[in-house]
Simulated assay, not measured.
Amino acid sequence: MTSVKICGLVSEEQVLAVASLPVDHIGFVFARSKRQVTPVQAGAWIRRMKEARGDDRPLAAGVFVNFSREELAAVLEEAPLDVVQLHGQEDAAYCRWLKEAYPGLQIFKVITLTGGAGSRETSPELVIQERLQSYQPYVDGILLDTFDPVYGGGSGKTFAWEAIPPYQAWCREAGVRLIVAGGLNPDNVNELLESYRPDGVDVSSGVETEGMKDMDKITSFVGRVKRFV
Rank of each mutant, 00 (worst) to 15 (best):
S119L: 13
L86R: 11
A160I: 00
G152C: 00
W161H: 05
R69G: 10
R69V: 12
E78F: 06
F147T: 04
T112E: 14
V63Y: 01
Y138V: 05
L76K: 14
V127C: 04
G104W: 03
A60Q: 08
Y102F: 15
L126T: 11
E78V: 12
A79I: 02
S155K: 06
S119R: 10
A79P: 14
A93F: 11
E70M: 11
Q85I: 06
R120W: 04
R131M: 13
Q136P: 03
Y138Q: 06
S134Q: 12
T158V: 07
E100N: 04
A117G: 07
K157V: 03
T122D: 15
Q106N: 11
Y94K: 01
I128N: 02
A60L: 12
F108W: 15
A74N: 10
W97N: 00
A61N: 08
S123L: 12
A79W: 04
F64E: 01
K99G: 02
P137H: 01
G152Q: 07
Q136D: 02
G153C: 05
D145M: 07
F64K: 07
T146Q: 07
S155D: 07
K99Y: 01
V84Y: 03
T112N: 13
W161G: 07
L72A: 06
S134A: 15
G152D: 04
G118H: 09
E162Y: 00
C95P: 08
G153W: 02
R120K: 12
Y135G: 01
A92K: 03
V150E: 12
S123I: 10
D140H: 08
G88E: 14
L72V: 11
V110P: 00
A92E: 13
I111A: 14
E77Q: 15
A160E: 08
Y138T: 02
G115M: 07
T122S: 14
W161M: 05
D82Y: 11
V75C: 15
G88C: 14
